[in-house]
Design a protein around this nucleic acid. Sequence first.
DNA 1: TCCTAGAATGACCACCTGGTCACTTTGCTG
DNA 2: CAGCAAAGTGACCAGGTGGTCATTCTAGGA
Lengths: 234, 234
Amino acid sequence: MPVTERFNNLDQAKQRKILAAAVEEFAEQGFMQASMNRLVHKLGIAKGSLFQYFGSKEGLFRFIFEHAVDLVRQSLRQVKRDTADADFFLRIRRSLAAGVAFIDRHPQVYQIYLKMIFQEKFPYRTEFLQQVHLFSAEYLTPLVEAGIERGELRADLDVATTVFLLDAVLDRFLQAYSVSFLDAGMGIYRAGEDQVKERIERVIEVLRQGLGSSEADPAPRSGADQKGSKRRHV
Amino acid sequence: MPVTERFNNLDQAKQRKILAAAVEEFAEQGFMQASMNRLVHKLGIAKGSLFQYFGSKEGLFRFIFEHAVDLVRQSLRQVKRDTADADFFLRIRRSLAAGVAFIDRHPQVYQIYLKMIFQEKFPYRTEFLQQVHLFSAEYLTPLVEAGIERGELRADLDVATTVFLLDAVLDRFLQAYSVSFLDAGMGIYRAGEDQVKERIERVIEVLRQGLGSSEADPAPRSGADQKGSKRRHV
DNA sequence: TCCTAGAATGACCACCTGGTCACTTTGCTG
DNA sequence: CAGCAAAGTGACCAGGTGGTCATTCTAGGA
């Protein structure tokens, strides 16, 4: 029996209420700064009860965390299925839109995720980051490989670099959607559905076509380092 | 007189020692979780002294914070000057390399920056994010505009979208350099100087050329929105 | 040598933390 | 209704927090 046996015997409504309040607390405060006292007060239940249910603060977090991971996994599988035979760029746009939709449905879960990335003292942080890396690799790599095979992507693309680039842009788009001042003034933060869709198209289109003008293309490397020898200033 | 008068009268060595320890504490713990008691213990000075110097925990943070902002501003100005008349992609590569060099010299300052982005309760967080946004706008926007004018970038690029994309990629590269599992397996995390340089070239080159194959290029729009209704292209 | 201005000090304060456990309440069974 | 196991409770604990301030120390001038 897990520590949470007692909690599982509660009626669904109470369970949901407790979980919702706990998710809110962790989303707003992070792990270390979250307070069991405050949580208990918000819920109007006794502190002892909460500890009977989950054993410890970390136990509560683990419970919530696993729930959240499930949600993400589910969501990812769904998108992958739904877009299976679309062309590469449509799939990417759809994935990004799905990301935004996920944040709309579970904003606090996303908040916790963001806090975990750079706040070292979260429990399970390392395992979690590994998992996320795996998700992204398992999701994007075959997508890119299929895109190359189908001729939708340049044949000479390095897969790892491309995955990194996509990861960077997708992640930042979602961050810009839920954190102010990260959208470089292009109106992504908390934008409406239509605007989000339009911004997604803009960004992905630039990514597809590239920044460079078609003239002056080749030989990009010569002269990459003028001062010769090492440089380490700034 | 600022609150820090007493601190300024200390000899340089002691000042540096205190600042270094404080930066370390904030970098490791964030603001809320940083402990004045622990800091004082690390330094071997009395708690009362530290509070005489800076008035409060927030006062200490402000002092360090302003120091850090100065460092960044200085660094940015330098890069801008050093690369003023290079071509667009070289400037970008140089800027990214300068970012990596900055992290090498001030890893803890960068740590604090990362924590501030997603941890809401940092003092000055909002002003800080605005500042960063301004930096990025003031730095990248003219760079992109010049690139378009010189014909190095596609003439039909939307400037805001391009700046967003660059911001996303540059930021993520630096994050990947200093946080594990964010580099999508392409070997950026704590990489050596040469490897960093090579990875920068790879990433920027893909960004320049774009992902799309040159065939199948035009009409990217048809079928982009199966559900019909409005579309708001690029 | 003495005196004193100003710096250094750490015991102390009110408050908060995660966690415990003896006690009370609840609700089912016989 | 009695008995009893399980669930609920909150006062309590040790230990941490940012912050204060009466006291002690110290360095330099007379």
